[in-house]
């Protein structure tokens, strides 16, 4: 989340002699029994279902899993992953999907928020609800209805296409339109959370800046471009990183709408991981693929952080 909370210096005893430092430590521990007890439930679940699995995931990625025992195979899983054509295609598809949909998400969020912000309170909350409502609905439902709208024979889209005088399109059935259809869907789902976050950030901007600019003779667009957009940069960064992470995890649409097909046209990383793990039970390979996914997301997040931060004053 790009957030660095100011951490108070919590426990930082002055460097003293080794033994007495140890003593201080133990006394401290003893004194804070309650604190540990309060943390206990979280720590147990965190250890069992987060910490251990993360470490385990890395370990597994160097093993070949077998129901009756696993063997070490070095980096073979990583080699296999990159040698697999389907995995490479899925990487590319996911990348393409992200590169198109994430900027679209952020941009439409910014535009809609800009349009909504000057409106009255009632209109604001109406539009906020209208744009956010579709995003609280489960992706499974959204995918089901979009699959229905993309239906070749009876779908809403081919009806509209027909009204425009064009031939019906086999949206999810052709390689050249399948991924595109999923991207269109993702773009047309309103960026509800983005809009709300932008609106909140816009309301925090110091109004005197605008007044000063007004006196300098800046028009509405100039004020938006020179004040609003730069002031929103941290929010933009936050949304970019957040939606990139989400976008790299695209899965529900795939399994509900295309199954990765036709051919490999809509294979995505997570769908491949899912199949590798829970159809083929190559847990080692699946872990390696997950680790690769993790690093790609990391690299993207760092890259976005750098570019959007660097030109900020």
């Amino acid at each position: 989340m790009g957030i660095k909370p100011a951490l108070k210096t919590d426990f930082d005893p002055k460097p003293v002699k080794k033994q007495s430092r140890m003593k201080v430590l133990l006394i401290q521990i003893n004194k804070n029994k309650v604190a540990y007890l309060f943390l206990m439930p979280k720590l147990i679940f965190f250890a069992l279902f987060m910490l251990i699995p993360i470490v385990w995931s890395f370990v597994l990625s160097f093993q070949e899993f077998n129901i009756m025992g696993s063997t070490w195979v070095g980096i073979e899983n990583y080699v296999d992953a990159f040698q697999s054509k389907v995995f490479r295609i899925s990487l590319w598809n996911t990348l393409l999907y992200t590169i198109i949909t994430v900027p679209a998400f952020v941009l439409t969020a910014l535009l809609i928020a800009t349009l909504v912000q000057p409106l009255g309170k009632l209109s604001q909350s109406f539009f906020r609800a209208a744009f956010y409502l579709p995003t609280v609905t489960s992706m499974v439902i959204i995918a089901m209805v979009w699959r229905w709208m993309y239906n070749y024979k009876f779908g809403l889209f081919n009806y509209i296409v027909g009204l425009l005088g064009m031939d019906p399109v086999n949206w999810l059935g052709q390689s050249d339109t399948a991924l595109l259809s999923l991207m269109i869907m993702s773009i047309l789902i309103p960026p509800g959370s983005g809009i709300i976050i932008y609106l909140a950030a816009m309301n925090e901007i110091d109004q005197t800046l605008y007044e000063a600019a007004k006196i300098d003779g800046a028009n509405t667009f100039q004020r938006w471009w020179r004040i609003t957009v730069p002031m929103l940069k941290p929010t933009t960064l936050y949304l970019f990183i957040l939606s990139t992470i989400g976008s790299f995890q695209v899965f529900t649409q795939i399994i509900m709408m295309t199954g990765g097909g036709p051919g490999n046209a809509t294979e995505t990383i997570v769908h491949v991981i899912y199949k590798t793990a829970f159809r083929d039970f190559k847990f080692g390979l699946a872990s390696a693929q997950s680790v690769i996914l993790f690093f790609i997301i990391m690299i993207f997040a760092i890259f976005q952080y750098r570019t959007l931060r660097s030109d900020h004053h």
């Binding site: 033994q19 140890m22 003593k23 133990l26 006394i27 521990i29 003893n30 029994k33 540990y36 007890l37 206990m40 439930p41 147990i44």
Partner: peptide, 20 residues
């Protein structure tokens, strides 16, 4: 004193740990 601290502190804590 260190021993006492360990005893006093840890046994108590360990009991609760174990219990949990």
């Amino acid at each position: 004193s260190v021993y006492k601290t360990i005893r006093g502190g840890f046994t108590l804590k360990m009991k609760k740990w174990l219990m949990t």
